[in-house]
């Protein structure tokens, strides 16, 4: 796990010009995934998920491993390391 994290971190730092920060991407998640979830929202809040679970979900969307309407189109915009950074940011919210 630690090795994996170091790898991601080093990738991020080497590509700092091309890569976006997790926060800057993740802020747009809240447009649909409300931080104050309404009881009847069909779109889930992202509160309370682990980094690993969020990252896997986004990678599954990106690589069409899961059946979904919108997220596969959004997730393809970001590199795997950007997705990892988004998951890290969201899991700390």
């Amino acid at each position: 796990m630690k090795r994996w994290l170091l790898m991601v971190l080093s990738l991020t730092s080497f590509n700092s010009h091309a890569e976006l920060s997790g926060e800057n991407i993740a802020l747009n998640c809240f447009n649909c995934h409300n931080r104050k979830p309404a009881a009847n929202s069909a779109i889930p809040s992202l509160n309370g998920y682990s980094r690993q679970r969020l990252q896997q979900a986004m990678l599954d969307f990106k690589y069409d491993k899961t059946n979904a309407t919108l997220m596969p189109r959004i997730a393809k915009a970001y590199s795997d390391s950007e997705i990892s950074a988004v998951a890290a940011y969201l899991s700390q919210q």
Binding site: N31, A38, I43, T69
Partner: peptide, 29 residues
Amino acid sequence: AGGVSQKTDPASLALEAVYTQSAYYNLRS
């Protein structure tokens, strides 16, 4: 990345209708 709805089976279109409403209220919030 991006683009328009890819899945146009009735179940997906119905799901997108439900998301339309949730997305509106969540964005507003």
